[in-house]
Design a protein around this nucleic acid. Structure first.
Lengths: 190, 190
DNA sequence: ATAAAATCGGTACACCCGTACCACTTTCAC
DNA sequence: GTGAAAGTGGTACGGGTGTACCGATTTTAT
């Protein structure tokens, strides 16, 4: 069971541990998130980690959830400001290792039911963003197709460090093929 | 440096260790591939692992390479026999945890340059298969788009255990939209 | 036959891990 | 104020890890 402190300092400490966990996951990946490393990174004693989080798995789960949430809001903002076609630029600009940590946890969710729910929230959120910007329902085939394309392009770039040269072409082609005629929202504002 | 034995029994032992590593990766994921577990699973003493593989990383790299190669030939066979549209059926039928291990290593390649080369071989191989079955060059935009769609559908199924209900619909739509008019190869044989 | 090289396998080392424990201090409710 | 609850932090335990070491054994080359 996850502990939720009532005192102010305690809440701040818990949050510090969480961001420390996210940072470590970003920098060193999965294996780097240990009790000792998290505690040290948050300038707290070792026992703080076991006090605020009942286990390492719970800590990782919450870190994953936080990572997903911030990531979703970030990309939503970017797309509403720059349009779908500019998404490759955001991918290229984003912190690569951070995205790596996100994907690491995502795949790990395949073996951990607790993480799986968060993983679903993650993809659902991405699909919803695309659906919203295209003014289409989430279940629309074109939305799903566009999402799958973007997802792979992103993962490929993060893992294999491929240049995103053809991403723009690919994306433009996909949008042109998929979207209905009246979708100004798919384009960046003038 | 990777050791390549000259004697027969030694070669068999090395191969046994490798398949043991793949098995363990399949069953328990990344963390399960330890020297002791691999040795025990291959019915060999602990020291065998360090004798045939200079480090755990090298062992994992070779396991990854082997996993990728067998996976590529398997899917190539399937597609030539059943067609592209039947791919979701193969995905559904395949050993889920095995695919999970593959994807785990793929993402991990983002932090390990040695694995990264294998990861590229993996995606390149997938793209090539699609290009071949569609009689299109690998650089064709439609090939790339089809690949990205398939890739995400696959990963989603493996990680989130989503039903592949809409995969057929999605795939059919994508193929209909993308492929040129004369591509009988994309359809299953009558 | 014999020396060199390859292989084998048992053991040991140093390290890091998650987590439990517990005496201590601070905060809160009344 | 006083007792209960919450928070704190130092330490310890049991266990698993990668890898090095080294004498014994087998294979190969000559």
């Amino acid at each position: 069971m996850t502990t939720h402190p009532t005192q102010d300092r305690a809440r701040r400490r818990r949050a510090a541990l969480l961001t420390a966990a996210v940072d470590l996951l970003t920098q060193g990946g999965f294996a780097a998130v240990t009790h000792r490393a998290v505690a040290h990174h948050a300038h707290l004693p070792l026992a703080a980690t076991t006090y605020y989080f009942t286990s390492r798995d719970h800590l990782l789960a919450e870190a994953f959830a936080q990572l997903v949430d911030t990531e979703l809001t970030t990309t939503r903002h970017w797309i509403t400001h720059h349009g779908l076609t500019a998404l490759p630029d955001q991918i290229a600009a984003a912190d690569r290792t951070r995205q790596l940590g996100l994907w690491e946890l995502y795949v790990h969710a395949g073996r951990d039911p607790a993480l799986q729910a968060i993983a679903r929230r993650w993809t659902d959120g991405c699909v919803r963003i695309i659906a919203d910007t295209l003014n289409l329902p989430e279940t629309d085939t074109r939305v799903r197709l566009l999402y799958t394309t973007l997802s792979t392009l992103w993962l490929e770039h993060v893992v294999e460090q491929r240049p995103l040269d053809d991403a723009h072409t690919l994306l433009a082609h996909a949008i042109a093929t998929y979207t209905p005629t009246t979708t100004e929202n798919a384009l960046p504002p003038p």
